[in-house]
Amino acid sequence: MPIDFEVAGQTDIGKKRQINQDAFLIDEEKGLFIVADGLGGHRAGEKASFLATQTVQTFFKDHFEENQSMETNKIDKSLSPTAHTLQHSIEKANQLVHLKALNFSQYNGMGTTIAAVCLKGKNLISANVGDSPVFLIQKGKVYPLSETHTVEEEHSIPESSQLNTFGKNYWKMLTRAIGIEEKVKPYLCEIPVYEGDTFVLCSDGLSKAVSFEEIAKTVKRYSAKDACSLFVELANTRGGKDNITVIVIKIKKSRLSCLKLVYWASKMIRRVISHK
């Protein structure tokens, strides 16, 4: 049985940047959702993010039905074929962005982060490179489904270390990105999906501006579309230092089951009795 879901996405330039280097993509038919955050410090970040999302989508579509193994450096045999397709798509996108950056002087050194999520059957596959996070919100709690590939998260160097002299900016630097090197290894995570789960993909423009509790609260109270616009509004109100992009995927609850009917009926009866 396919999962019933509600999805919305929004991107905003923010308040400080001249150009929106984020890109997002929603493919409801294949259940593919991508957020990419072009690297601002380099040239043509907006081209890199756009190219990466498009490549992943095209490649993923072409190989969606093929379930045979591909000649990738498989991360793990236990992952489903769809997960491998997604991994391969991201690797292909990396190759393409890298080649373009090498061959055209105006694109030299361009790169992007990527966070992609794919819904297939009862499962969800999340893949990411860089610091654009994917969150799962389940029963009011936020769980990360992505690894943050920054110096700060990956290296636990003691405070007295020499590296601290590089300053705070150094800690925020990415250790992995699409298009910088010839090969990239995305982080993959595959989990079963339950009714009522919500998934949030965003660029760091949002994840740095709001807390976990605010994310959980907002997706619980509003529809996917309203939640997106509220997230953008919230990040902008707190300075809007970076581009803001967000996709919210809400897994719908199935129709009333027998048990629920009995529960509601008993609640109503109790209410009537207490009124008397």
Binding site: K122, Q138, Y143, P144, C189, I191, Y194
Partner: peptide, 29 residues
């Protein structure tokens, strides 16, 4: 059992018999 960035998560998947953790039946993650 899925390895996520913040630890190992046990999730019920399908079937009539529910798994139990510390004697509590599990229907989610």
């Amino acid at each position: 059992i899925v390895k996520r960035p913040d630890g190992y998560y046990f999730s019920y998947y399908q079937g009539f018999t529910k798994p139990k953790i510390n004697n509590r039946p599990i229907t989610g993650s």
